[in-house]
């Protein structure tokens, strides 16, 4: 059952009056429950594609449909609300807010909902439990290791129970051991919790964990692989 449908999506940037094409008429279908890996050399447009899926950027041409929503036609404000409900984003550099504790960082997306304080607490503790950091709730990001920070970031991404998890080089800044832990977590989220994940990566170890692989080069799709169904 297709969750994501990209049709003829093109994206170009204007830099000093020159049009730089980053994605060229890309069409992709992702089914619910897929763990998709996006690979390709630097400048291939994979991060751009991720940004388009997240709704934090708009395609120059083409349509992006996630679930029943044609997100390319939503207004900025509607997009923000949609994003809050449907997307969980994991960054390469974790991007936790330094003045907030682990608990408060994970709680952040819930502030946009109408849940009560007690309800928010439940969700946060559940999410932190899943990533295995329930004992670090009061710690600030500077008190956590890189791997722990990324796991808190993952907890933040899943706390709203989003339709789609998007990860941009989640292991790019981690040592081998932490990377392994994070990838195991992601795989678990996909296989056990049935989360649809789109992950951009360079890392072949990361790519191994995905169920599907897409290769991009110079803004176009060059290869599609199925690793498991």
């Amino acid at each position: 059952m297709p969750l994501i449908e990209l049709r003829d999506v093109t994206k170009s940037y204007k830099r000093d009056a020159i049009d730089i094409p980053v994605l060229d008429r890309v069409s992709i279908t992702v089914d619910a429950g897929d763990f998709l890996g996006l690979m390709g050399p630097s400048g291939s447009g994979k991060s751009t594609l991720l940004n388009l899926l997240a709704g934090i950027d708009r395609p120059s041409r083409g349509s992006i449909k996630i679930g029943d929503t044609e997100i390319s036609s939503l207004s900025e404000r509607a997009l923000a609300g949609w994003r809050a409900r449907h997307i969980g984003f994991i960054f390469q550099l974790y991007n936790l807010i330094p003045v907030l504790t682990a608990f408060e960082n994970v709680e952040l997306p819930l502030l946009l909902t109408s849940l009560s304080k007690a309800q928010r607490r439940d969700h946060v503790m559940t999410a932190l439990g899943i990533v295995g950091l329930a004992d670090r709730v009061k710690h600030y990001p500077r008190q956590l290791s890189g791997g722990q920070e990324q796991r808190v970031a993952i907890a933040r991404a899943i706390v709203t129970d989003p339709t789609l998890l998007l990860a941009d080089e989640p292991t790019g800044d981690l040592d081998a051991k932490s990377a392994g832990e994070v990838l195991t977590l992601l795989q678990r989220l996909n296989e056990e919790f049935k989360k649809t994940i789109v992950m951009v990566t360079h890392d072949p170890h990361a790519a191994e964990r995905a169920s599907h692989l897409l290769h991009l080069e110079k803004g176009t799709l060059v290869e599609q692989t199925v690793q498991r169904s």
């Binding site: 934090i56 609300g81 994003r83 946009l112």
Partner: peptide, 16 residues
Amino acid sequence: TTEIAVMRTLGFPSGT
């Protein structure tokens, strides 16, 4: 800037 971008990514509207 990064923090603000992250919050926008999380879905915080510009107004907030």
